[in-house]
Amino acid sequence: MYGLKFPHSARTREIRFVLNGSETSVRVPPGYTLLETLRYVLRMTGTKEGCARGDCGECTVLVDGVPVHACLTLMSQVEGRSVLTVEGIDRQHRLIRAFVEEGAVQCGHCTPGIVVAAYHLLSQVPRPTEEQVREALRGNLCRCTGYVKIIRAVLKAGEA
């Protein structure tokens, strides 16, 4: 797909999974991560890469409803499972609206991962407290905002 080339020696394998509700099939080498697949193979760049080693939370996606680091998730682990990325969240979702209205977005590079993490939180705890929001987002680093408006946005979405 999109002319992405793999090394000659790489033996690719077909992996089927459900991506944002659609049956998806990709051919990737063993050891390929979900993040590499999303960004390089499928060119779905809403999921960002911040460190590729599970430290920053930028690549947070849901696998069968559970938040994971796409950079630490091998494709063999998602075979037959359901993946939700930021592109799979309704653009009219109250969380998106709250992020825009509250000014929770600056450079915006961490935002998709945080939106996914917050989306998961609200699915578990519809009206979280500030402490619960802080706890849920502790693995998502942001360097621009100081988190103030991000937390306010999630709380606002929780009130709706």
């Binding site: 809403g46 930021v86 592109e87 825009v100 000014g103 977005v105 935002t111 998709p112």
Partner: peptide, 8 residues
């Protein structure tokens, strides 16, 4: 730019 950034 907030919306297009928030939806990825």
């Amino acid at each position: 730019d907030a919306f297009e950034k928030a939806v990825g």
